[in-house]
Design a protein around this nucleic acid. Structure first.
Lengths: 298, 298
DNA sequence: TTTAATTATGCCATTTATGGATTAATTATT
DNA sequence: AATAATTAATCCATAAATGGCATAATTAAA
């Protein structure tokens, strides 16, 4: 009793084909179903729409009237879906993203000129407030997170695994001595994001874990990096973050044979049913950050 | 995967209520169904339409766009159905009927002034060609038939059972003698529709059958009646048919204690799903012919 | 007139959707 | 801060729709 809308579409098909059978062939809906659905529609309305003879069908007066209306309605519905399809295919609209400021400044900013010119229809609304994984209540299209963000019922796609390296300022190393083995780090001030107590280091096939300590608990990469340039300790992070400091010799690499566990970058969305703008953004980031990984891996 | 059209309507309801629960209350569709149908719609389109939190829902960009389209489409569909509903309720249009000429002249014609003024929106297309029960191929809204017309898969509604009486011209009775018992009829020229050989006669609780013969096989009531007025035999028919002849003394009743089996009048339609014009016509005939039956029964 | 072809519908086993109660989760209230 | 209340999503037994096949009925062709 509530299939009226869909039956309308079937009715339009039958009338267009002027035959149940041809409509069945055209639509893939079996003729038994067509026949039953049209009958149900007629009963639902209370009027016969088609005069059926075994050889051909004709519209009744009511059917003629109804068809004219239905044709338009079904057509408009098709257009509505197509329009949404374009939204799926043609990236446009406002892209609302929540990102860590350090990721935005270091990785995203350099990619924006190309992205923006490739997808001129997209405008941007970036929120760099740290850690806001509300996603469900906040109207973000996507959030970028670094580290392991395993929030339940959110979709996390890994964009990159950035290799990390150890850095310190020349003056810090002068004062505290340069470590020559990973275990030496336990005697040093190791500035870490949050208060985790263990760094995993790799050298070719070797792997070792060192528990590291620090006076600081800080949730800002920029601040940790700034402290490192002020000779406050050793840091472990992707080289891109400290590229400037390396150029200016404010920092230099420590234990250059060793590297830390890659820092994962995730794009987090509330659903997999994404509009084109979001899909393109994530895809673009994934491609370009992947390149970055490969180019710096070795 | 093919419920898109109906899900559109549900989506509109949910958005109007801005809540699955309220939409469920408003529409009677359980919220579990709403939830599943909206999800199916989103998967079908490939885009999320609603941002759901446990406390409230919001439209996504795509949802906003889609809603504006859907609202209009659903509204138009509702209007289309209402318009057809009016067709059901407000009798109008051309009424195409096939009727026996004798029925039309004798019974229908006198009723037409009242019917026509009660339903001014109806115009008429009467076909008085004898016996055309095509119905399915011919675009008749209704056919009136007298006698027993038990055509399969056509809907026959009995409009009246008209009592029949025996009539003959005074001169015929002079020449052939006046029957005093039903069995006397077997010696007379009994003019009959078609070539049936038996008349069933009633007198209060008595019933008797007489086999009757005639030189004629005729399928026209008018012709039989004309022959009777020309002293050619005895006829058995409703009194209304011969009312004029009775007034003019061209015919008078024979065996006045006896009457024949009632002649049934049927309205035959192809379907029960009738537009108002047809329903009103049949209803009107039924009422007025019924009155006729009762008034003449005794 | 007979034959063949075409079409809508009835039937029934299978697939699919439904709906009431439960669950998980979040907001408003105390 | 903790509780209560409200809401959307999930589960599963039941109900309904589907689709392939057979049938009836009719027209076109032979």
């Amino acid at each position: 009793m509530e299939h009226l809308l869909n039956d309308m579409a079937l009715f339009v098909e039958v009338v267009k084909a002027m035959s149940f059978r041809r409509a069945a062939n055209a639509t893939g809906v079996p003729n038994s179903t067509l026949s039953r659905r049209i009958s149900a529609l007629e009963k639902g309305i209370g009027l016969r729409l088609l005069h059926r003879t075994t050889r051909k069908i004709e519209l009744t007066e009511a059917g003629q009237l109804y068809y004219e209306r239905c044709k338009r309605i079904v057509e408009e519905a098709r257009l509505a879906h197509e329009q949404l399809g374009e939204m799926l295919a043609q990236p446009s609209g406002v892209l609302r993203a929540s990102l860590p400021v350090d990721f935005a400044v270091t990785f995203l900013a350099p990619l924006m000129p190309e992205f923006s010119s490739r997808y001129p229809g997209i405008t941007f609304d970036f929120d760099l407030t740290p850690r806001r994984v509300d996603m469900v209540s906040e109207p973000f299209d996507v959030a970028i997170r670094m580290g392991e963000s395993q929030d339940s019922n959110l979709i996390a796609r890994q964009l990159a695994r950035l290799p990390t390296y150890l850095y310190a300022s020349p003056r810090y190393l002068e004062l505290s001595g340069e470590p020559s083995e990973p275990t030496d780090l336990e005697q040093h001030e190791c500035l870490n994001i949050l208060k985790s107590g263990e760094w995993t280091l790799h050298k070719e096939t070797q792997m070792t874990k060192v528990s590291v300590g620090s006076k600081f608990v800080i949730n800002s990469v920029a601040m940790i990096r700034r402290l490192a340039t002020l000779d406050m300790g050793i840091i472990l992070m992707p080289k891109e973050i400290v590229a400037d400091d390396l150029d200016n010799r404010r920092l230099r690499r420590v234990l250059p044979e060793w590297q830390g566990s890659p820092a994962s970058v995730y794009a987090i969305t509330e659903t997999r049913l994404l509009p084109a703008k979001t899909r393109c953004f994530i895809e673009f980031l994934s491609e370009h950050l992947d390149k970055l990984c490969i180019s710096t891996q070795y």
